[in-house]
Amino acid sequence: MTEAINAETLSATHILEYPYTRSVGPVIGRFLAGLRDRRIEGVRTAGGRVLVPPVEYDPRTGEPLSEFVEVGQAGVVSTWAWVAAPRRNHPLDRPFAWALIRLDGADTALLHTVDAGDESKMATGMRVRVRWRESTAGEIHDIACFEPEAS
């Protein structure tokens, strides 16, 4: 038989935090600088596909990518999920949709938010348009959200 160990189990809180920095490189750097100027750019692969947001290396072949292409500021929702009760850290303070949005001229979809007001306004295949933040800084949140395109 094992004898029970009669000892107090101690615990203590340990908070560890310090800042990191990131160099975005020439491709993501150009994309973010474009957002600052309210322009959305992707890159074209050797196979002709336009990737938005751009990546430095072709995910299929590994080749470096450098041919930038400006794409449209509106596009099609390819899939979405409704957030009925946003939390503190969500980008919008009212119910919204997370959505994958394929911008006009792009072959891939960008993850962002759609401010549709109500879930009933959301549909796969619907058209949405970018809404820029008032002041831009060169980051993805320069796109405040997307909103249903007026038909």
Binding site: S23, V24, G25, P26, I28, E56, Y57, T61
Partner: peptide, 27 residues
């Protein structure tokens, strides 16, 4: 001290591409 000209992917790529070229290989 700082290679601000490249991202982390760009940094590893620089070394890897040189090793491949040295070996006479492609990806």
């Amino acid at each position: 001290a700082k290679r601000g000209d490249v991202s982390m992917p760009g940094l590893v790529r620089e070394a890897a591409a040189r090793a491949l070229e040295d070996a006479g290989l492609t990806w």
